[in-house]
Simulated scan of single mutants.
Amino acid sequence: MAASEQQPVLVIMGVSGSGKSTVAGILAGQLGWDLEEGDDLHSEENVQKMASGLPLTDEDRWPWLDTIASWIIEHTMAGIPGIITCSALKKVYRDRLREKNVVFVHLSGSKEQIGRRLTARMDHYMPATLLDSQIATLEAPGPEENTVVIDVGRTPAEEAAEVVRELGLSPAPGSTTLGHARPGHSTATTPDAPGR
């Protein structure tokens, strides 16, 4: 990551079940940074489609990605660090989200590892049957992208600790290590999701 006085906006990316929300929540709590759950910005139509086992098309995703991009731009323009979760499976999706000081944190693991995590989840609308579709869609970030790759074979706390270490992150001014952000919540004003 290039040296900068401004700390980054982190996009925690990866297929469903890779642990994006958990790792993002730990990081936000430790750093005291704004946190947004990208899945909460999906339209009701997208949520219903995924819940029924149908993969989203690019047409479905663009309005959602634009909403996420708005959140990112709001933070980068204000010089405020933040953390947002987004699968960001394709390079063209990441291109839509790419801004100065944005770092993609790719939670990467084997189909077996992620499948076990996804099957164990009871609180998410995306069925495990969509994992194959997500893996097929994933275009792993290349070396030219501002990305840190984190292997998911460890505990979420260990994975979050590696993110902090790799990027040299530190708590926001005035925050405590207890944090003020919770998973799925942001302390900043967030644009309304399309269709909500």
Rank of each mutant, 00 (worst) to 15 (best):
D34G: 04
V105I: 14
E139T: 13
I135L: 14
E44G: 11
K91Q: 13
H185F: 13
S70W: 02
G29W: 07
G29M: 01
N46C: 06
G29K: 06
G79V: 00
W71C: 15
G79W: 05
P194G: 08
P8I: 01
S133W: 02
E44P: 05
M126E: 01
A193M: 10
M122G: 14
T85F: 02
E37C: 04
G14Q: 03
G19F: 00
T189N: 06
K49H: 00
R98V: 11
D123M: 00
L131I: 09
I114G: 08
E5D: 04
R154Q: 14
A120S: 15
I83K: 06
H124I: 00
L27H: 02
P173V: 01
D66P: 07
L35C: 15
N146T: 14
R165T: 07
P191C: 03
R116K: 15
A88L: 07
T187K: 15
A88F: 00
L118N: 00
D132Y: 04
R117P: 00
L131G: 08
A161Y: 05
A140R: 10
T147K: 06
V103Q: 10
A136H: 01
A136E: 10
A140N: 08
E158D: 13
M77P: 07
W33Q: 00
S43W: 06
G82C: 01
E112P: 10
A120P: 03
Q30D: 12
A140W: 02
E99L: 11
E44M: 07
V149E: 09
D40W: 00
M126R: 03
A69R: 14
S4M: 03
L41Y: 04
H185V: 15
K91S: 15
G195N: 12
A28L: 13
K111M: 12
D151F: 06
D151Y: 07
G32L: 01
A136P: 02
D151H: 13
V164T: 06
P183Y: 09
S18G: 08
N101P: 10
E112H: 11
K49Y: 01
A161N: 05
A188P: 01
N46A: 09
V23E: 05
L35M: 14
P143Y: 11
G38H: 08
V92W: 06
Q6S: 08
T22P: 04
L35P: 04
V163M: 11
M122N: 14
R165Y: 09
R196Y: 13
D60E: 02
A51Y: 00
E112F: 03
L54P: 05
D95F: 03
G79Q: 00
M1V: 13
A2M: 09
I80R: 08
F104T: 09
S87R: 03
P183C: 07
V23F: 11
V164W: 03
E145M: 05
S87N: 12
T187S: 15
I150C: 00
E139C: 10
S16M: 07
T176R: 06
I68E: 03
I83M: 02
D66R: 14
L130F: 01
T176Q: 08
A188K: 01
G17S: 03
G142E: 15
T129S: 15
V9L: 02
W33F: 05
G174A: 04
Q30H: 12
P143T: 15
R182K: 12
E112W: 07
K20W: 04
A120I: 02
S108I: 10
G168L: 10
A28E: 09
